[in-house]
Every structure is written in structure tokens, then in C-alpha cells.
Design a protein around this nucleic acid. Sequence first.
DNA 1: TAGTGGTCTAGACCACAAT
DNA 2: TTGTGGTCTAGACCACTAC
Lengths: 253, 253
Amino acid sequence: MTRWTGKPAYAQIADDYRVKILTGELPPDTPLPSESALMDEYGVSRIVARQAVGVLRNEGLIHTHTGKGSFVRSRSRMKRVAGERYRRRSSTAPFAGDAHRAGSRPDIEAASAPLAASLDVAQRLAIEPGDTVVRTTYRFLADGTPIQTSTSYEPLALTGGTPVERPEEGPLAGAGVIARMDSLGIHVDEAVETVTTRAPLPSETDALVIPTGIPVLTIERTLYAGETPVETCDIVIPGDRYALTYTIPVTDD
Amino acid sequence: MTRWTGKPAYAQIADDYRVKILTGELPPDTPLPSESALMDEYGVSRIVARQAVGVLRNEGLIHTHTGKGSFVRSRSRMKRVAGERYRRRSSTAPFAGDAHRAGSRPDIEAASAPLAASLDVAQRLAIEPGDTVVRTTYRFLADGTPIQTSTSYEPLALTGGTPVERPEEGPLAGAGVIARMDSLGIHVDEAVETVTTRAPLPSETDALVIPTGIPVLTIERTLYAGETPVETCDIVIPGDRYALTYTIPVTDD
DNA sequence: TAGTGGTCTAGACCACAAT
DNA sequence: TTGTGGTCTAGACCACTAC
């Protein structure tokens, strides 16, 4: 590493290979040079070679497997179209539709329990903190690999004592919130989604099998029947496997 | 580091401080122990202490400054509400409104030039590859700090020879695409946005001053007048400074 | 001047994968 | 058995910051 271009050695090595990956000179699944090969090629110590590889891994451009090597990541994204998700008459939950369109076999794990609403959840549902809500945690899988988690909260005041009190049980199990609420005469007519991104929590890394360097998309979604919030949930999806599409009407003000 | 819990030392140290940060035990701007303090506390070498700090930095939980130390990052997000952005009669570009609502002083840099449409841009605008488009690159700043870049493409066939051919010049400079198109009798009535997340490119890190470990949100947006796309653009925003809100009507299908 | 983080060298042992 | 990446030690020099 004799030439000095104002950047540290590891950054220059990372830059070189980033260009090769992004231009397609190194297509997906191509192996990168081993750490010792990089040491020879650039005349640096192993730490520096590793650091360069680490940068690319943290950018999500490559993945590494011990004993095998580093490989260019392939990027393909499932499309989640908000407008298609929220249809009153669909008989299955929106996720199943997404998966079918992508040619994947969907699977949903769900478990629910009542609990007292936290301050945050109470605000989102326009109820009092401490009021009872039914919390349901979901994990969605496509072809056996987990691809989305969701934690949903519904006021027990709406569903308590009805056949649809628990989303994963009863006659409308797996049918989706909108259909279940419809069966109670509650007609959801609006969904509000707030999208953010961040690094995954360790628990999310486990639950969703997220490789190092991949951020997650988080969606805070609240469903409204008129002015009344009837469900709110937190959705977490791996950022490299999904694209979210929204259609917004342009109004006259 | 005598106790062994199945995780490498650096991961355990990172876990300890991640918990302290996420639970609020270490509030924003709190300094973390220095590397040598971590070496003493856990009985590890400097490399390991640094690695632990590096994990937290890559997760966006802390930021480090040479000669000063590591500090818990403060997280506050600007809200970008899609429904409020797309109003035909607003006199300023949507970004200025976002900024004003957040109490920030907005500033917009823009530069445009004609060029031949790439395959991708041509598909998005439903024109032929090679057709001339006007490309405008924007950089949006709030209180002097860059907060969003955008690269916009408009078919020259729509705007060529009119006073609004270049977005940053003419009578409607800074008024936004929708107003400019309106002045030509082209009435935008729909926006389609596709949101993804990824690590920033080096150029984006520079242009947006993105700290290590922060992903970006990318929005591919196309504006339609009826069935006709009239503008498409690629928006890049730092993932830690924005939340995107969308309102979706629930239809009967 | 002392302390901080940023970079780097030269080793070492381990688990895993391919042969 | 050989090569790979994963972890770790014990040093070193530098630039920047605070005092």
C-alpha cells in the first residue's frame, strides 16, 4: 500500500471492490479474494484486509461464510403494494397475497394475549393507558424463511367476547384484521403507515435471520374506521428483501 | 473477560451497552467509557474494545469523535407526510413546507441539464430510450445541513421551449413540479412512491453528511397526469432523520 | 501535556469447509 | 490436510481535543 490518496488503506481497498460490485464487474455470488490474497495484492496486514471486507459487509454488498469465503450478495426485492393490501373483500390476509404474487409459499405464525396498553399504544389507539388490548405477535414466512414480523394491538373493548377476539383463532382465523372487524360491523376505511429505517435489534436479527449490514424497514400502521383507530401495529421487515409502494392522490387542497 | 456466555467478548460488551442505551440508562449525548476504560472494565485488548464500540456505531446507536470520545446518538426525526406534500395549489415546493413545520430554515440547491434518457428512466416515463429528458439534481438543506438529495427527470417533449423548461429558472422557480406542470395545462393527479432502504453510497455519504452506520431511505417517485408519467425522480434521505407517512384508503375491491 | 479515537503491524489459536 | 474466515493479544505511531 505505497500510494497515498488521502484515504486509509482499508478504505481504498473497500472502494476498489465496491466499484467492481456496483458496476457489475463482480456479479452476485462471485467470490471475493481471500483475506490472504488481499494482503498480498495490497501489501497490507491481515487486520487491514479484514477491515476492508468488513466495510463491504456492513454496507450489505457482500456476505461472508467461515471456511468458504466472501461472496457478492444478490439483491432481489419482494414488492409490497400498499394499495393492493387493503381490500375489504379479500378472504386472506394481505401477506398471503404478496407471497403468492411472488411465487412463494406463505406461512404465518401468530400468538395473542391480552395486556394493559402502554402509553405509546394508548395514544395510537386513542384509549387510556392501562386499558386492556389484545396483543398479537406474528411472524410471516415465505418458503420457510422468515420475512416479516408484526406486533398488533387491538382494544379489547371492540372485540371482547366476540368470535374474533383472538386473530389466530375462530371462524375468521387468517382472514386479516379488516375482515374480522367487518364481521363486527366495524368498517375500516383508512390505513396510516409511517415508515422508518434503522439497524435491526438483536432479537430481530434472530427472528428474521438478517445478515450483518442489512437495515430493517419499520412500519407503524394504524387502521381507522372513520375517526376511530381500531388496530395499530409495528411491522419489521428486512430492508434488502422488500420494496414498499404507495399511491398518493394529488388533491386540489 | 472470564465469564463465557457463548458469545465473543466484543459482542457481550456491545450487548451490555446496547441495553443501557435502548433502556435510556444512557440518554442521548452521554459519553461512553473510553476505549482504555473498556479495556480495564472487561479485561480485554484494545482491538476488542474498539470492535465493541464499532458494532454500536454500525448500528447507529453512538457516534464517535476523534480526540473526544463516543457519545449516545440523539434520535429525532423529521416527518414527511405524503398526503400533505401533493397539493396542487401550494405555492412552494413540498420540502419547504416540511421544513417550516419542523421549525427549520429550508434551502434548495438545484441544477438542470438535458440528456438522453437511460433505459431505466425511459421505462419509468414511458418514453423511448435516448429521448431527451431534463435532469435536475437537487440538494435540500434544513438550517444549513443537507437532508435530502433528489434527481428528477422530465421529458423535454412536455416542457421544451416553455418558460418552465428548467425547474430552477423562470417564473415558477422553486414552486414545485406540480405547479409548473399545471402552468402548461398538465394536471398531475397521482404520485407513486416506492420506498427501499440500503447503506449509503460514498457520494451520498459526502453529499448528505451521513454518519457511519446510518442507512438511507430511497424513494423512487413518479408523477402521473392520468395515465401519462410526467416526471420521475430518485430521492435519497438519511434514514435517521426522517419518517415517511402515507395514508391509504381501504377500498371495497 | 495528556487523553482520546484512527490506523496499522506481527503474530496466535480456533471452528468450519473443501479436498 | 489445507485454506478460509472469526477472534484475540501486545504492541506502535498519528491526529485531534481539552486543559
